[in-house]
Simulated assay, not measured.
Amino acid sequence: MDKISIKTDIYLGQGALDRLTDWRNRRIFVVTDPFIIKSGMINMLFERLHDSNEQYIFSNIVPDPPVEVVTEGVEALGAFQADLIIAIGGGSAIDAAKAMKLFAQKILKQHDIPFVAIPTTSGTGSEVTSFSVISDKEKNIKYPLVSDDMLPQEAILDPELVKSVPNFITADTGMDVLTHAIEAYVSTKANDISDALAEKAIKLVFAYLPRAYNDGNDLEAREKMHNASCLAGMAFNITSLGLNHGIAHVAGAKFKIAHGRMNSLLLTHVIEFNADYKPGYGREESSAVAARYAEISKSLGLSAPNAKSGVRSLVQAIKQLQKQLQMPQTLRECGVEISTLEKMREGIAEGALQDGCTATNPRVPAAADIVEILNKMFQS
């Protein structure tokens, strides 16, 4: 028996930020990053907040927020005695705010504070998930936290906030969306509801990510990618993820590669591993996982007369998309030396096996399988 709860109210489309005008007489703890302040984007928030509110701005957020920043935020949250949290920024700001909210409840025994998430990138889907990723900088490890207590009560998806996102970040975050959706679709916990969410997200990415990459002012493409990110987030919040993210959490920290880019580098290799795909035209039986990937190909209108062809078509379509987005396709292109890979790959493999996301991967990997994937990623 599956249980599906969608607890976050979603305000989407142009003008969605106007929802903020409804909040009155609140002590608002705003979690954001220095760029949102410096760029003036924070003013889009303050222009809509009523004068009866008091605000405290916590802007010490950095990419892959470390435990120390979360601890500092929890202390500030408690001292301010906030009764509303608003996170505005990318996945790092929202993830940090989620962790702060969770620990404020557990450590400070604060009541369940309302939480509004406003993403300024179209990638993580963090605004609708029970997941948060926090880093230990000393150990170069990312820790996924999972708790429904972190779910935002509201998410505001306004495409105006993502118009200024640089094209390379649009590419990285967009490929993160695609990875979320594909992993949700083949997860061992997938069901009809998550399938519908994931399939729509995948279609939106292939249709609109190149447009958003080529023209940041294309508001239709920006809105569709914002929606795709949210849909994929809702999908994997039901199903969890898989080996792609299990490896990415560890390898991204070790190699200092952005999360979305790391997922993109892994994606075709993990698909081929899960499908047990081997090049050629043999008649060997295809796995049930391969058939699932072939269903994705069919939904995209790609050639999929059988499962093996469907897997091949999906892999080729992803590679073509990566080329359109001018993304690196090997670790070598990202500046990783072979000596660095050789030194770290065993540790990455062990860390990936322990990552919570790997548990719902459709094919159970061994450490040697992950090492082989990393080797293929180096210069395939």
Rank of each mutant, 00 (worst) to 15 (best):
G78Q: 07
A79N: 15
F80L: 05
F80C: 10
F80K: 06
Q81R: 14
Q81N: 15
Q81H: 13
A82P: 09
D83W: 00
I85R: 10
I85S: 06
I85M: 13
I85N: 02
A87L: 05
A87K: 02
I88T: 01
I88A: 05
G89R: 09
G90M: 10
G90A: 12
G91S: 11
S92V: 07
S92L: 08
A93R: 08
A93Y: 04
I94P: 03
D95E: 04
D95W: 01
A96P: 08
A96R: 06
A96W: 09
K98W: 08
A99V: 09
A99D: 09
A99K: 03
K101D: 07
K101I: 08
K101M: 03
L102R: 03
L102I: 03
L102S: 09
F103P: 00
F103I: 12
F103H: 10
A104K: 08
Q105Y: 12
K106V: 11
K106A: 14
K106D: 15
K106T: 15
K106Q: 15
I107F: 07
I107M: 13
I107T: 14
K109H: 15
K109P: 01
Q110H: 12
Q110T: 14
Q110R: 12
Q110I: 12
H111C: 04
D112Y: 11
I113E: 07
I113L: 12
F115A: 11
V116H: 08
A117G: 05
A117V: 04
A117H: 03
P119Q: 05
P119K: 11
T120I: 09
T121N: 04
T121I: 12
S122M: 00
T124Q: 04
G125Y: 02
G125V: 02
S126V: 02
S126G: 14
S126T: 13
S126H: 00
E127S: 05
E127Y: 04
E127K: 02
E127L: 00
E127I: 01
E127V: 03
E127N: 05
T129M: 06
T129F: 04
S130M: 13
S132L: 04
S132A: 15
V133W: 07
V133N: 04
I134E: 09
I134D: 08
S135Y: 07
S135C: 04
D136F: 07
D136Q: 00
D136A: 00
D136P: 00
K137T: 12
E138S: 10
N140K: 14
N140S: 14
N140Y: 12
I141P: 01
K142G: 03
K142D: 10
K142H: 05
Y143F: 14
Y143G: 00
P144T: 06
L145A: 09
L145C: 09
L145Y: 15
V146W: 00
D148G: 10
D148A: 14
D148F: 12
D148H: 15
D148Y: 14
D149W: 13
D149S: 12
M150C: 07
M150D: 06
M150T: 06
P152V: 08
P152T: 02
Q153Y: 08
Q153E: 13
Q153H: 15
E154R: 07
A155P: 04
A155V: 03
I156P: 02
I156D: 06
L157G: 05
L157Q: 01
L157I: 15
L157P: 05
